[in-house]
């Protein structure tokens, strides 16, 4: 299974980014391959409109089954993620990626209701 995180860096020890649309990085953990890959989303800072759907579209292409983030996506982004059938867990806006992954494994994160 592939798990996506919104983050401020590209390592397990990186801080989470609480924002969805304007997250600096998207980190993908592939459980089967035990492999961590990152997507640099920082050009989104120059986008005035539609950051949410654009980041969501990127996620659509990366095809994770699960997204772990902070505040959760807005309406438009949520529509895209629903289309991509991504399960979204929120409340993971602060702390490191590793800490939030552990929380997810222990069922301590809240599922985004939309």
């Amino acid at each position: 299974m592939k798990i996506a995180f919104t983050t401020k860096g590209n390592e397990w020890d990186s801080e989470m980014d609480p924002r969805f649309g304007r997250t600096e990085f998207i980190l993908i953990y592939d459980e089967e391959k035990d492999e961590l890959t990152s997507y640099d989303n920082r050009t989104i800072a120059d986008v005035a409109h539609g950051a949410g759907p654009q980041t969501a579209q990127k996620l659509f292409e990366l095809e994770p089954e699960v997204l772990i983030t902070g505040n959760g996506p807005g309406g438009n982004a949520a529509t895209v993620l629903k289309e991509a059938k991504v399960k979204i867990y929120i409340g993971a806006g602060s702390g490191t990626v590793k800490e939030m992954f552990d929380k997810y494994k222990n069922n301590e994160l809240k599922e985004f209701a939309g």
Partner: peptide, 16 residues
């Protein structure tokens, strides 16, 4: 970003 290609669909976000 009001028009997005999502897999085999084109989504239009009217508000954007």
């Amino acid at each position: 970003h009001a028009v997005l290609k999502l897999g085999k669909k084109i989504a239009v976000f009217n508000e954007l």
